[in-house]
Design a protein around this nucleic acid. Structure first.
Lengths: 219, 219
DNA sequence: GTAGCCGTACATCGGCCGGTGGACCTTCGC
DNA sequence: GCGAAGGTCCACCGGCCGATGTACGGCTAC
């Protein structure tokens, strides 16, 4: 049995949801709340499996409530249900820890399926948002994995790229020499070839370039 | 009317899909393919709205086919349909440009809904994966927005932090002086205070730290 | 084969950098 | 009122850096 808490500032809407959900034998509406603060209190008292949460509410809004609930009551999972396709709300909601994000114009069957999905520990996102999520994900991941290569880097030889990477770790020429098993003179030669090729003044700018192109990335 | 191309190396499975899909008045199966190469050719010939794509196939697999299709035929959107919850396939598929990713054990109704969603330009992802996608998204985004502050940075004064940021952009002391309206001597003083506070040897390492702590981030 | 690129290595020189020590001023807290 | 902390400025010195020129062996391509 999935215990659900309804959170919305419109009593009529809560009533509608309750009627829809109670047609399902495996779903029970165990409580209601009219704002964020009340929602947090209800979650603490009732420990529902799923919280059906509106975003825009007087007082504490749904996002802050979601953040508190997911932080303090990991057992309860939050499914955001909001009016329109407000992307900023969506991303904020996911950051706040929501397990799902649906629009209020979904079919009842989809909403019910979403509740079951969230209760099972999985995630559900409105189709329009799923697309944005995928795009953002691939873009971020591409930036991380460093396929945003600067064309200038292609002009470097393999060895030069190696030296550049060591340089970008903050090593001195002598340290790079030790690291790569070279003489310091050789490293200096490489460095003196790398910088003009990349149009840079000194190794400091080389580090900047290395991070900005994704040649190196924050760990 | 949504034109669909079926891609799977098992003819029986294609037959099953075709029977299911043809119960829908707004969906038409316009072609089939048994491997990736054939799929690419069929997409070029038929320009279907949606490609229902298997991953594991002899010859060119579904991922490479997806990559080519989304690159060369932006009008056709690919919905990956694979056997089990292979996360690595999922992420690779999204990177390859897939608009959706479902498991073959979905209900027919969900698959049909997924096809409509993808045809409408939106995205659809299996619930289990949606969760991972959300987690990855929030994690990546958090890393980007730089909440991974190093406690050492707290020991810097406001002005020192300012100088550090300029330094991390690759500027020389003289340039920082101009930028902040100071004398070069002052900048040198700040730098000489910053480095020991952070336990660093030179400004190169300061740049590394700035990027690794998220004080600066790739654009 | 020979011209060219790459990788290795050296010497020298000017310049920026970083350390040290000192100085003055403002702001804040006791 | 006065010390502490932050911010601004200066001079000097040693050191690493980057530029320049030069050199040699290996490999590839023509």
């Amino acid at each position: 049995m999935i215990n659900v808490l309804l959170v919305d500032d419109q009593p009529l809407l809560r009533m509608g949801f309750r009627l829809v959900l109670e047609t399902q034998p495996d779903i029970a509406v165990v409580g209601e709340a009219g704002d964020g603060a009340e929602a947090v209190a209800q979650v603490a008292a009732l420990a529902p499996d799923v919280v059906l949460m509106d975003v825009r509410m007087p007082g504490m809004d749904g996002l802050e409530a979601t953040e508190r609930i997911t932080r303090d009551h990991a057992g309860s999972r939050v499914l955001i249900l909001t009016t329109f396709d407000l992307d900023e709300y969506a991303f904020a909601a996911l950051h706040a820890g929501a397990a799902g994000f649906l629009l209020k114009n979904v079919q009842p069957a989809e909403m019910i399926a979403g509740i079951r999905t969230v209760a099972a520990g999985d995630g559900v996102v409105a189709p329009r948002l799923t697309r944005v999520l995928i795009e953002t994900f691939t873009r971020l991941n591409r930036a991380r994995t460093g396929s945003a290569d600067d064309p200038r880097l292609d002009r470097l030889t393999d060895r030069e790229r190696e030296v550049l990477i060591e340089m970008a770790k903050g090593l001195s020429n002598a340290e790079i020499a030790t690291e790569l098993g070279l003489s310091e003179a050789t490293v200096k030669t490489h460095v003196s070839r790398i910088l003009p090729k990349l149009g840079l003044r000194d190794r400091v700018q080389a580090v900047v370039l290395a991070y900005q192109t994704g040649l190196l990335r924050p760990p």
